[in-house]
Amino acid sequence: MPKPPAPDELDAIAVELYALPPAEFTAARNARAAASDRPLGARVKKLPKPAVAAWAVSLLGREGQLGDALELASALREAQDDLDAAELSRLSGQRRALVAALSKQAAALAGERGVAVGAAAREDVEKTINAAVMDAAAAAAVMTGRLVRPLEATGFESVDLTDALGGSAPDGSAAPPPPSRDDLAERRARKEAEKAAREAERAESEAERELSRIEGRLGKARERADLLHERLEDLRDEVARFERDSADAEAEVKRIDEERSEAASVARAASKKAEAAREALEERGGR
């Protein structure tokens, strides 16, 4: 009995054939089957013609940015496993925007090769990219470059990959086993630890900002206190000068008052003498 062809050999031929525009596929497949030995040729002959949407997604995987979507897929699935609603909502929004952008890119790449992607096929392209983002097995299938029909993710169930590829199924086409309870507990614990660390860092930053604000206020208060202290010292010196001047003025007043008292006494004595002299003069005049 002839030995069946190795899957790698068949898959390599399939990748080459599925890189051709769909309109060229059948003729190229038949020619390649005829040129191969009988066992391999029979397998090549059975390779199905790809749907336009499937071919466009394979093209995107080869020449576009489909890898970006598949990187997002890992984070999205982890958020689902951990039941992190906020992260899931954020990643879901990113996924929808990325899927739409990649679908547009796939249609543009197909158009450059003369293949029109109609409205229905465009919708299938979006569904297929979304399925690859949502499901690891679907992502592995898409990245083989041998997709023959569109894929679709329904909820969080595994994507149906039956007859989705030309050639063998990739090693990662089987759905991964669900995470164990220990794995989920570890992921949740890690998420909680990361959240606690972020909150602690935010609290630390806020405390440092508050400390900086208080230190700024303290510096201004110290400057004002120093200025007032200097002014107070100046005022104390001035008060001391005023007290000395006041004491000198009081002493001057006392001295002048004593002089006035002495002058008043002299004036009274002189007035008495003058009065006596006037009286004496009047007596002599009367004689």
Rank of each mutant, 00 (worst) to 15 (best):
M1E: 14
P2M: 10
A6I: 10
P7H: 11
A14Q: 08
V15A: 14
E16W: 02
A19M: 12
P22N: 05
T26S: 12
A27Q: 06
A28H: 06
A34M: 09
S36M: 05
L40M: 11
L40I: 13
K45E: 14
P48D: 06
P50Q: 03
A53R: 02
A54T: 04
W55I: 00
A56F: 00
V57L: 05
S58D: 00
S58V: 03
L59W: 04
L60A: 07
R62G: 10
L66Q: 02
G67P: 09
D68Y: 15
A69E: 07
L70E: 01
S74N: 09
E78N: 00
A79V: 00
Q80S: 07
D82Y: 01
D84K: 06
A86Y: 09
R90I: 01
R90L: 00
S92M: 09
G93L: 08
A97C: 04
A97D: 08
A97K: 12
V99K: 06
A100K: 15
L102R: 00
G111F: 15
E112W: 06
E112R: 12
R113A: 04
G114R: 06
G114S: 02
A116C: 02
A116W: 00
A119G: 08
R122G: 14
R122I: 05
E123C: 08
K127F: 00
A131H: 03
V133A: 09
A136N: 09
A138S: 04
A139W: 05
A141N: 01
G145N: 01
D160N: 14
L161D: 01
L161E: 01
A164V: 05
A164C: 04
L165T: 04
S168L: 10
P170C: 10
G172A: 05
A174G: 14
A175T: 05
P176C: 06
P178Q: 11
P178H: 12
P179W: 07
S180R: 09
R181P: 07
R181Q: 13
R181Y: 10
R181A: 15
D183P: 03
E186V: 08
R188H: 10
R188E: 05
R188N: 04
K191A: 13
E194L: 15
K195Y: 13
K195D: 15
A196I: 12
R198N: 06
E204M: 08
E206R: 11
E208Q: 12
S212D: 08
R213D: 07
E215W: 04
R217W: 06
K220H: 02
A221G: 03
A221S: 05
A221H: 08
E223Q: 05
A225S: 01
D226A: 08
H229R: 13
D234M: 14
D248Y: 03
A249F: 04
A249R: 03
E252F: 01
D257G: 11
E259W: 11
A264Q: 13
A267H: 12
R268Y: 10
A270G: 11
A270H: 12
K273W: 13
A274T: 12
A276L: 15
A277C: 03
E279C: 04
E279D: 04
L281Y: 01
G286D: 09
